[in-house]
């Protein structure tokens, strides 16, 4: 079996029989991983549900501090990036490497826009003293609006949810830069674009989670 790999195409790892098997495996692995991610965020959603059931008035009051406009813009940005990542996969399937790279670049740019907006949102809140846990120190005006004694818990949950989600966006950006570089080196073609496909799957999930986070945190009244 020593020189078995002789007849394998270069991208097929030694332990796979053929390219199809490798592609199917990678895709399945990513789906299993996404199930994982859903349960991971599921814990946060569960904490959200429990505290919201206990303190409904807290949630409606605290949500007013979140900026619906910028949250909405971010939602559109992320949905747009899901579209461009799908187009990137399409380009790869059609062997249009230039299109693949352009679409990846747009996706990366949109993801960065999301993070920048998120940064300014955080920045603004921290400035007002709406900070997590022991850093909680709101200005007197804010305290008037946020009279609920457990207001800090809402923001504890807010920072955990958006923070963990933000980390996922950063990971996504890293992955897509890596794809962009590999695409430049000519690693992908219509024969082999598995990493593009499974990163796309990941990116859709990151987007989907935000689509749940946005109404649950920003739009409750």
């Amino acid at each position: 079996m020593a020189n078995h790999s002789a007849s394998h195409p270069a991208h097929v790892q030694h332990h796979f029989v053929d390219s199809d098997q490798q592609f199917e495996s990678a895709k399945m692995g990513m789906w299993v991983f996404l199930v994982n991610e859903i349960l991971f965020f599921g814990g946060l959603f569960c904490a959200y549900i429990v505290f919201r059931a206990w303190y409904p008035e807290l949630f409606t009051q605290a949500a007013l501090e979140l900026n619906k406009l910028w949250g909405g813009v971010n939602t559109i940005v992320l949905i747009g990036s899901s579209l461009t990542v799908a187009m990137a996969i399409r380009s790869a399937q059609k062997n249009q490497i230039k299109g693949l790279r352009i679409n990846l670049l747009i996706t990366i740019a949109l993801a960065c826009v999301f993070m920048v907006i998120k940064y300014f949102e955080y920045e603004h809140k921290l400035h007002l003293g709406i900070a997590p846990g022991s850093f909680w120190n709101p200005t007197p005006e804010i305290l008037e609006e946020l009279s609920h004694p457990k207001a800090n818990i809402f923001f504890g949950i807010y920072y955990m949810m958006t923070g963990v989600h933000g980390l996922h966006v950063l990971v996504g950006i890293g992955l897509m830069i890596w794809l962009y570089i590999r695409a430049g080196k000519g690693h992908f073609s219509s024969e082999y674009y598995t990493p593009v496909e499974i990163t796309g799957l990941y990116w859709h999930l990151v987007d989907l989670i935000w689509i749940f986070l946005f109404p649950l945190l920003y739009l409750i009244e």
């Binding site: 846990g133 850093f135 457990k150 800090n152 818990i153 504890g156 949950i157 920072y159 955990m160």
Partner: peptide, 8 residues
């Protein structure tokens, strides 16, 4: 909870 005291 330990690092930031978020209180869940």
């Amino acid at each position: 909870e330990n690092i930031l005291d978020i209180g869940i």
